[in-house]
Measured scan of single mutants.
Amino acid sequence: TRVETATETAWISLVTALHLVLGLSAVLGLLLLRKQFPAHYRRLRHALW
């Protein structure tokens, strides 16, 4: 049972790390898009919101 708990903890930390990386890359991508293609960014924002 101890090994299972350790594996679960590892999976949870892995998933958390993946979510963090995905969130950060999404934010960075949006910032880059905003900087380089303001028109595209505006259109995207209108489409999303």
Rank of each mutant, 00 (worst) to 15 (best):
L48P: 04
I12T: 11
H19F: 14
W11P: 00
Y41T: 13
G29E: 09
W11I: 13
T5M: 05
R45I: 09
W49A: 06
A6P: 08
L24Q: 00
T1Y: 15
A47L: 11
A6W: 07
A47V: 12
H40N: 09
A6I: 05
R43A: 14
K35D: 09
V27K: 00
L31I: 08
L28E: 08
L48R: 05
T7V: 13
I12F: 03
T5F: 05
R42Q: 12
A10C: 03
Q36I: 00
H40M: 10
T16M: 01
W11G: 02
H19A: 15
R34P: 08
A26C: 13
A39L: 13
T1K: 11
R43L: 08
H46C: 09
V3P: 01
E8F: 03
R43V: 11
T7A: 15
E8P: 08
R43E: 08
G29Q: 02
R43K: 13
R43T: 11
L48V: 13
K35H: 14
A17Q: 00
W49M: 00
H46L: 03
E4P: 02
L24H: 00
L33C: 13
G23H: 04
L30V: 12
L48K: 07
V15D: 03
W49P: 00
G29I: 12
R43M: 07
V15W: 08
R45W: 07
H46V: 10
P38Q: 00
W11H: 09
R42Y: 14
F37K: 06
S25R: 04
A10G: 11
T7Y: 15
A39P: 01
L44V: 13
E8W: 01
K35C: 04
G23W: 07
W49C: 08
K35Y: 09
F37S: 04
T9Y: 08
P38V: 00
A39V: 13
T16I: 10
R2E: 13
L44C: 11
V15S: 01
A39G: 14
A47R: 14
H19E: 08
L22E: 00
A47S: 11
I12L: 11
V21S: 15
A39E: 13
L44W: 08
T9N: 06
L14R: 01
L24D: 04
T16L: 07
A39S: 13
L14P: 03
A47I: 12
R2D: 13
V27D: 01
L30T: 08
S13Y: 10
V21N: 01
E8I: 04
E4C: 05
R42M: 11
A39W: 11
L33A: 11
P38D: 02
L20G: 09
H46F: 01
S25H: 00
L44H: 02
Q36S: 15
T9L: 12
T1H: 11
L30Y: 03
V27R: 02
H19T: 13
G29P: 03
A39Q: 13
L22A: 15
L18F: 15
F37N: 02
H46Y: 02
H40T: 10
H40G: 12
L44M: 14
V3A: 04
F37G: 03
L33W: 10
T7N: 12
K35R: 07
T1F: 13
T16N: 04
W11N: 04
L28Y: 02
A39C: 01
L31Y: 03
R45E: 04
L44P: 09
R2V: 14
Q36F: 05
R43P: 09
A6H: 08
P38N: 07
R2C: 11
L48M: 13
R42K: 12
L48H: 03
Q36D: 04
E8N: 04
V3D: 03
I12N: 08
L48S: 00
T7K: 07
T16F: 06
H19V: 15
A6R: 12
S25G: 02
W11V: 12
H19K: 05
G23L: 15
A6K: 10
T5C: 06
W49K: 07
I12W: 01
H40F: 04
A26L: 13
T5R: 06
L24I: 09
A26I: 14
R42L: 11
H46N: 14
L30Q: 01
Y41E: 10
A6T: 10
A10Q: 10
S25Y: 00
G23I: 14
A26D: 04
P38A: 02
V21T: 15
L14C: 05
L32I: 00
L32P: 02
I12G: 03
H40C: 05
I12D: 01
L18A: 00
A39T: 14
L18T: 04
A47G: 09
L28C: 05
L31N: 04
A10N: 09
A47Q: 10
R45G: 06
T9F: 11
A39I: 12
K35Q: 13
V21Q: 03
A17I: 09
T9S: 13
R42E: 12
V21F: 14
A47F: 13
T7H: 13
A6M: 11
T1E: 13
Q36L: 06
L44F: 14
L30A: 13
W11C: 09
S13V: 15
L32F: 04
R2N: 13
T7Q: 14
T5V: 08
V27E: 03
Q36P: 05
K35L: 11
H40K: 11
L48F: 11
L48G: 06
H46G: 09
T5W: 09
L32M: 02
P38M: 03
R34E: 06
R34L: 07
L30C: 14
L14H: 08
V15Q: 08
A17C: 11
W11L: 06
L22F: 01
L48D: 07
L24S: 00
H40E: 13
S25V: 10
P38C: 00
A10S: 11
L22N: 04
A17Y: 06
L14E: 01
L18V: 06
T9K: 12
V3I: 14
A6E: 07
S25A: 13
A26E: 00
T9I: 11
R2P: 13
A39F: 10
F37D: 01
L24P: 04
V15R: 02
V27A: 10
G23M: 14
R43W: 10
S25L: 07
V21A: 15
A17P: 01
A10V: 07
H46K: 10
L18R: 07
A10M: 03
L20E: 07
S13D: 08
Y41A: 15
G29W: 08
R42S: 11
E4V: 14
G23K: 09
R34M: 11
R45H: 06
R42A: 12
V21G: 10
G29L: 15
T9G: 15
V3T: 04
S13A: 15
L33E: 04
L44N: 00
T9D: 06
L32R: 06
L18I: 08
W49G: 01
T1V: 14
S13H: 10
L32A: 00
W11Q: 02
L32T: 05
T1I: 15
V15H: 08
H40W: 04
Q36C: 05
F37C: 06
L28V: 02
E8A: 05
L30D: 05
